[in-house]
């Protein structure tokens, strides 16, 4: 239950059958991918009464109609983290990271194809989920041109680079930036005006889970109001749980970095599983970006 691997690793492992996992935590587009691959067990909602605790918008999901296979765990955005003393004003546009050399050598982007290319697309005014090779090509060219100014494609440790002064601006998951903000008041966080990725981690039961009863009980436990509040406050991600919000502190609830305003959310976009051909398109573009 306490083993954590990233989505890709989990997917690779489940491809050959479930070695004994009861509960897994994929992100929304991976829920969709796993559904396509027929890896998830349908949930028995009668065993999860706490599903009623969920906020209205989270009761249903486009990637899993009727929430038949997943319950939401946490949600958030991908945003820009920056060091206030080194950057003039608020870097509230992806332009700063993707198309500007003012902070050359002091910037980091994330380390995976989907997010780096996706947000370049967003900056160029296109959809984060574009499947159009011409559009992806444009994003690729933009990133290759900007590469000389980027210090590193940071795989999940942009916040450390920011906190240690290695970079002044980074692209990261909001909760990761929030963790370093707690210790360093000089760090800020913003969702750029073009909008970013809106993600949702979900709890699912994989096919072949050895203890489905316990798994359901665990899901129900996580959706409990008090538990949800505690988890959310600890890891600094937004809870989709209305009951949890009643138990949570004001500080947590009023933090706009955790719960962005509705008009920001409106600009953001959720990742969609694009199919295997698009996955290859993105991977090849990403290989070319890294080799350039």
């Amino acid at each position: 239950m306490d083993l954590y691997a990233d989505n890709d690793e989990l997917f690779a492992k489940l491809k050959e059958g479930n070695p004994g996992y009861d509960v897994i935590v994929p992100t929304n587009d991976y829920v969709e991918r796993m559904l396509t691959a027929n890896m998830l067990e349908p949930l028995d909602h009668s065993q999860i009464p706490n599903m009623a605790n969920l906020d209205k918008p989270f009761q249903d999901a486009a990637f899993d109609p009727g929430r038949k296979h997943s319950v939401p765990y946490m949600w958030g955005t991908i945003c820009v983290g920056w060091r206030k003393s080194k950057v003039d004003g608020t870097p509230d546009s992806w332009k700063v990271l993707y198309d500007d050399d003012k902070h050359a050598g002091k910037m980091s982007l994330l380390g995976d194809a989907q997010n780096v290319i996706g947000h370049a697309l967003k900056y160029l005014g296109m959809s984060l989920n574009s499947k159009d090779p011409a559009e992806v090509k444009k994003a690729e060219e933009l990133i290759i041109a900007q590469k000389k100014n980027i210090k590193v494609f940071a795989d999940d440790n942009g916040q450390d680079l920011l906190a240690s002064g290695e970079v002044d601006i980074c692209q990261e998951w909001n909760g990761d930036i929030l963790q370093v903000m707690e210790e360093d008041k000089d760090i800020g966080l913003v969702v750029p005006k073009e909008g970013g990725l809106l993600w949702q981690d979900c709890l699912c039961i994989p096919k072949g889970a050895p203890h489905p009863m316990n798994a359901h009980a665990f899901l129900n436990f996580i959706l409990d109001g008090e538990v949800g509040a505690k988890i959310g406050e600890f890891i600094n991600y937004a809870t989709p749980n209305a009951a949890a919000k009643k138990h949570a502190s004001k500080e947590y609830l009023s933090n706009t970095s955790i719960f962005p305003s509705d008009d920001i959310i409106a600009k953001c976009e959720s990742a969609v599983y694009l199919g295997e051909d698009a996955t290859r398109l993105y991977d090849e573009a990403w290989t070319r970006i890294q080799a350039a």
Binding site: D8, E9, F11, A12, G111, D112, A113, Q114, K147, I150, K151, V152, F153, D155, N157, E276, T279, R280, D283, W286, T287, Q290, A291, A292
Partner: peptide, 25 residues
């Protein structure tokens, strides 16, 4: 190369790893 390399540090190991994971190929 993943942790210490810069923006062009990709080695063939990284490409292979991606095929088995993210690229699912």
């Amino acid at each position: 190369p993943d942790l210490l390399g810069g923006t062009n540090a990709t080695m063939i190991g990284n490409v292979i790893e991606r095929q088995f994971k993210a690229a699912n190929d």
